[in-house]
């Protein structure tokens, strides 16, 4: 997909944007509002003010990271659909070790994020093992591990991790000194988004510009050839599993560190799944996937403003990504058939 010609990219983008526009206009008309007003409200709600933009970027952080994780895995041919569960594993690790970490805030943050990334990578290992040794499709095992993780969070916030100081199903809050401070006073956006975007750039460089990245891509594009040519296919696939799990775990850790400060239930509204959608929209290209993730986050924040101002349902925020991804996949499949 990184090799789509410019004309082809344009055709795909045009198809996707017209489909998304059609969905937006259709919903606005159904709600009896002017589509133009709806778009204006959506844009203003997403990026019309520093606060709105900050909210969008704060939301985008976890999405960008899971989108990179999905892109990396997909490019190596690993269908990790369990980013949601790995995100939760990372959040659990952050909530568990966070309150225990003493010392300088910087060291505590580093420890917390390392624990979160490690937990995400560990959470994907059963799927990696089952695939390598028993041929269990990772699509199934990772998605099932999502359910295990969700149930685990639900049990932990009512059990071992419950805040002893309250009755709510939530963990103890991180010390304020450890939590990431907002970049601007009063806003919610923190340096976390910068970490996420830097990782997107790093992942792109790794895949497209390094010898190691070429090996990874070859493994994803032609597993049988990769093995016969003499690439360490099993090791590269294991690495892709671990890296995508670690990125999702890191997303969960940053969510606790920068946004929520603690773990509660339910902790995610599908950030792992939306990350996969962003990866698909971005053609599993980490930078493009990161841009898609920011776009989806903007839709999320903008749509609540749009619902408030124009009455167009906020469900748009979930409909449009779905329509976009379907349109892109359909357009790519059609172009691929023509070109074959």
């Amino acid at each position: 997909m990184s090799r789509e010609s410019a004309a082809r990219r344009f055709a795909v983008a045009a198809a996707a944007l017209s489909a998304a526009a059609a969905a937006l206009v259709g919903l606005a008309l159904l709600a009896g509002a002017s589509p133009l007003d709806a778009v204006r409200a959506l844009a203003e709600g997403a990026a019309g003010s520093p606060a709105a933009l900050g909210e969008t970027l704060a939301r985008a952080t976890a999405l960008v990271l899971t989108a990179i994780g999905a892109s990396l895995a997909f490019r190596v041919g690993v269908l990790n659909i369990g980013l949601e569960g790995q995100f939760l594993a990372g959040a659990v690790a952050a909530a568990a070790v966070g309150p225990l970490l003493a010392g300088s805030p910087l060291a505590a943050r580093a420890g917390l994020l390392a624990a979160a990334a490690l937990a995400g990578a560990l959470w994907v290992m059963p799927a990696a093992y089952l695939e390598a040794r028993r041929g269990v499709p990772e699509v199934l095992s990772t998605i099932l591990l999502n359910l295990v993780a969700a149930a685990g969070v639900s049990g932990l916030v009512r059990g071992a991790l419950q805040d002893p100081g309250g009755d709510y199903p939530q963990s103890r809050a991180l010390p304020d000194a450890v939590r990431l401070a907002p970049l601007a006073a009063g806003g919610r956006v923190t340096a976390a988004i910068l970490i996420a975007l830097a990782l997107a750039l790093f992942a792109t460089l790794l895949l497209e510009w390094t010898p190691f990245g070429l090996k990874l891509r070859a493994t994803g594009l032609a597993p049988a050839a990769a093995r016969a040519i003499g690439l360490p296919r099993a090791r590269l696939r294991l690495l892709a599993f671990a890296a995508s799990g670690a990125l999702a775990g890191l997303a969960g850790g940053l969510e606790v560190l920068a946004v929520t400060g603690r773990l509660y239930d339910p902790f995610t509204a599908g950030v792992g799944y939306t990350g996969i959608a962003a990866a698909l929209l971005g053609g599993s290209h980490p930078l493009a996937a990161a841009v898609s993730a920011v776009l989806f986050a903007a839709l999320g924040t903008g749509s609540s403003a749009m619902q408030r101002d124009t009455g167009v349902p906020g469900a748009l925020a979930t409909i449009v990504p779905g329509v976009l991804v379907l349109a892109v996949l359909a357009a790519r499949a059609r172009l691929a058939r023509k070109a074959a």
């Binding site: 090799r3 010898p211 070859a218 594009l221 032609a222 050839a225 990769a226 003499g230």
Partner: peptide
Amino acid sequence: EEGLVAALSLSENLALPNPPG
């Protein structure tokens, strides 16, 4: 299936399994 990676370029194929750099 096993000889070449069809979706990679000729120069990339010829650089495998140990690309330079």
